[in-house]
Design a protein around this nucleic acid. Structure first.
Lengths: 354, 354
DNA sequence: GTTAGCACTCAAACGCATAGAGTGCTAACA
DNA sequence: TGTTAGCACTCTATGCGTTTGAGTGCTAAC
């Protein structure tokens, strides 16, 4: 069966109406809309066709129609490829970037705090739940290491990776090292390791470093362990969430067990990496992905939809932002908000780098 | 009216029964218990007295009795002052410290991760919600500062406070400083500041440092700002939570709006400091506090009870652990679990310090 | 002081009728 | 041939009266 123009219009009308109300949409409602001057009976015939095509369903025999995942997919694909469609602009309310602009222009030095705030603002603006991963490096390299004596046989190793990702490690090396020996060890490590990726730190190099370190070989080994840990991806991928309680606003998600599962995933931050998907190695700038219902790769989110975007921080550092809402999420608004946010982020991170 | 022994026994029986079931307790239920061989009518008379004393109430005329906050308070005070009361030991299930022992014996170097895990284990063991503050210093002092050049006019300032609390700050100072000048600045700052508390860094000292820094006075000022930020308490008090979804298990908290508010507070971590109370300056070792219902200082937790404990990490560093559950929380189990946890923490942090 | 008995209360559960939104089908119409 | 009015039918949600049962307070007897 063919999806002609009238059918498409009706599908769109159903989706829009369902987005607003959350209730199944009947033929009479559609027939009363301005641009569709047909009787309910005609609409009903078309609806029967749309149902046959798997784009809408009835929750029960005598109810209106609700879009299926397939129906939403059609709508979203249409939305993403063809920007200025017959869809009305996201109606009024808060302008997507209003608060965001002030927030981002502050240019906080603590990137993490900024990301947290960003999650909060996005959640408040969209009324959905937001998750943001910390910055993540494509192909990470060691910038430099700084060792300091802490007394009590402890050594502070500050490890800085490309993209200014800083990791602290307090190492217990048994006994204190003299100031001069520490300087030498510091120099030795930096001399041998700076600019290398984790793969380039191989056994011969490690042996060489231990040789050069002499009596402080143990300390050198401890620092190398810390370096390995600093490169560990899991570790360097914190996820910030905000607006988890927004899901209470959508009655179709109101099942207590489901809410509980979802909030649990958000709190324990276990599967959020999966939900956000992999950062595509050579992804385009605004790599916006939409997962609808069952398409979401996390079990407890299969009643929701998730929209993700990749942010670029210059210098090859990037991360992901995800917005979780009900299936009947306002995809248009969310996609627009994400695009605007990405643009602003780009502007801020590009300028001061030059 | 006097609270004689029989009345106390009946109150205890009501509390225990209500803890198990969450339902109002009737006179017949109490009368069937082993150690109270009285007819329901007798029990009813006593119950009427207990109600008059404000220790129990009826949710409605023809319902059983439920303990009031005042009733719980009596019970908890009794529990805390007089350890080995007629109360049966916390019955079976998971031995409080089982997993905790393995966890803590690992002695992770990353204290924060350990605290997060601790929150998780406590939540799993108790089936309540847990919050843990990061380590917090009573009267904090600067241990040392380490400056490193990062290129691009950026400076990495690593600030270490007493108790090995490490803060990173990337400072933008406009133009790079030469290696030698940086060494001098580093020495100057450490020479003047090490061992001082925030109050001791006063204007004359700041002027002196700027003088000594000479042309790098701006950079010195930036570092001093970073030091002030490092001392900022709000900033150094992360709160980890776990088991937020455990509240779904208790039907008396099942009101969606209340759950939403509570989870929101837990997620945004706003008022958790208030909920955990102030760390008492000269508190005893295991400073266990119980807040029942309306006693909890946070609005959205007034339907819950909160039990807090102070943990000591040696060297004057301490923090707070809080457990949030329904009013009918198993106070005995929670208090015991917390005490056991505190003891284990003490053992671990004391030993390697000597 | 304790207990049996009884009338009373109230929330929750149940059954049942009703309203109303919406459908599919058929037949008539342009 | 596409569109529409009309109608019988379906199914959920709502409201309402009834019943059930747990529990109480009071009184009178032990």
């Amino acid at each position: 069966m063919e999806l002609d123009d009238r059918k498409r219009k009706i599908l769109l009308a159903i989706i829009q109406n369902y987005q607003d109300t959350g209730e199944p949409v009947g033929s009479r409602t559609i027939s009363k809309m301005n641009d569709l001057n047909y009787s309910p009976a005609t609409i009903r015939n078309e609806m029967a066709d749309l149902e046959e095509m798997g784009l809408i369903v009835q929750p029960h025999t005598s109810a209106g129609r609700v879009p299926t995942d397939k129906g939403y997919r059609l709508y979203v694909d249409h939305l993403l490829t063809n920007e200025e469609t017959g869809l009305t602009a996201s109606e009024g309310g808060q302008l997507p970037g209003t608060h965001m602009e002030q927030l981002l222009s502050k240019r906080m030095d603590r990137v993490e705090e900024m990301l947290m705030r960003m999650a909060q603002v996005l959640a408040a603006n969209t009324q959905y739940t937001t998750m943001v991963t910390g910055p993540h490096y494509k192909q990470n390299k060691l910038k430099f290491i700084q060792l300091s004596a802490m007394g009590g046989g402890k050594l502070l190793a500050v490890i800085v990776l490309n993209g200014n990702i800083v990791k602290n490690n307090i190492l217990d090396i048994g006994s204190d090292i003299g100031q001069e020996a520490l300087s030498r060890l510091n120099f030795c490590l930096n001399n041998n390791l700076n600019g290398l990726s984790i793969e380039e730190i191989n056994l011969p190099l490690i042996t060489k470093i231990k040789d050069e370190a002499g009596e402080n070989a143990d300390a050198a080994a401890a620092v190398l362990d810390a370096v390995a840990a600093a490169f560990d991806k899991e570790d360097s991928m914190p996820v910030y969430t905000s607006g988890a309680t927004n899901i209470f606003k959508y009655p179709e998600l109101a099942d207590n067990e489901k809410i509980s599962n979802l909030i649990n995933v958000l709190e324990e931050k276990k599967e959020l990496g999966t939900a956000l998907g992999v950062v595509s190695p050579n992804g385009s700038k605004q790599d916006i992905q939409v997962y609808i219902g069952d398409e979401v790769p996390v079990e407890s989110m299969k009643d929701c939809s998730v929209v993700t975007a990749t942010y670029q921080m210059g210098d090859g550092v990037q991360g992901k932002i995800g917005i979780i809402g009900p299936r009947r999420m306002d995809y248009q608004k969310v996609v627009e908000t994400l695009k605007a946010t990405m643009n602003q982020l780009d502007g801020i991170f590009k300028k001061p780098e030059e």
